[in-house]
Amino acid sequence: MNVNFSSFQGELRAYLYGEIDHHSAREMRRRIDGEAERQHPNTLVLDFSHVQFMDSSAIGLIMGRYRLMQLLGGYIRVSNVPPHLKRLIELSGIGALGVLEYKGKDRGNNESA
């Protein structure tokens, strides 16, 4: 499975796995949106710690979920981006949305494997 979820006190955490491209982003989007619409979390966290590769489709994925959480009246955070993927995130300028969380470690360890 390319997305796993855990939730705790209104925070829904989506752990993304593998490679994010235009092909895989479609399925990830479907699963994340389904879970977010079902749970209506205060905060949706996209956890990139298990992402090996991504292209700009991942930026589209973040932007689309940002819009979804605006509609649902919640927030979104992008968490645990591995160092080698930061260049693309920086190039995209999505930091201006205030969604990036680079320092955050060990939050929400109630992982559903």
């Binding site: 700009s56 689309g64 995209s92």
Partner: peptide
């Protein structure tokens, strides 16, 4: 459309 960031050429360039 909404799910595309419009960054393809910018990424190739950079």
């Amino acid at each position: 459309g909404e799910e595309r960031a419009g960054l393809g050429f910018a990424v190739m360039q950079s």
